[in-house]
Design a protein around this nucleic acid. Sequence first.
DNA 1: CGGAATCCCACCAGATACTG
DNA 2: CAGTATCTGGTGGGATTCCG
Lengths: 123, 123
Amino acid sequence: MTTDSFLADCRARLAFDLLSNTWSAVVLWALRDGPGRPRELRERIGGISSKVLTETLRRLQFNGLVERHAFAEAPPRVEYRLTALGRTLLVPIEAFGAWAFEHGDEVMAAQDREAAGAPRPQP
Amino acid sequence: MTTDSFLADCRARLAFDLLSNTWSAVVLWALRDGPGRPRELRERIGGISSKVLTETLRRLQFNGLVERHAFAEAPPRVEYRLTALGRTLLVPIEAFGAWAFEHGDEVMAAQDREAAGAPRPQP
DNA sequence: CGGAATCCCACCAGATACTG
DNA sequence: CAGTATCTGGTGGGATTCCG
């Protein structure tokens, strides 16, 4: 990890690939306070469609970050919750969130500065 | 930040959007030991095309994470380096890399487990 | 050598409608 | 209410080529 392949390395890029989807990190974060049903998660998150939420949860489940529990009840009930592994990922995610809160203004200022100089596409 | 909008919040998602591109984090990391010319960066990174490297650097520059220095010399020379802001982002990036090294095996094991149960697409 | 221009493909995610 | 099916547009990024 003192080498320059720290990130180019397949292994190190894994974490980024896990969260490369638009909603993966958001959904993980929405589950941090406890299990949730799809409907509830959509309310916690806001702006995510049923389909995309399901897809995202499936991916997270596939990667062992989330567990799905289906209850055989009269009105169908499903619950998602973080696995132990998924919970460990909250730490680096939070680090990013903290960074954004701390440096978000600087980024937006830089964007304005650059946009003023030469119009460029956005991330 | 104690609310549930920590990540759903535009502000907090900023960091993820900054690195949502495949190569952004890798390029930032490649610059952590010092400035580099495009050719050199491509060698440090491996597997990135000239076009994509340029695009990535332009985006990073637009967001104030990277500076571009062009020298008016006989053989054209260009150098990229991290800004102070870009350097601060290395910390959370490293946190992700560390996570990947620590938990990568668990993820791959989970993938195998899930794949065995019901074939699913990958992230 | 740096990088801009083209062409092209694959994938993500949104909208909508339907099933159990 | 949970989840699926289908169609669609936008875009990221790979390969190639040409210009200063």
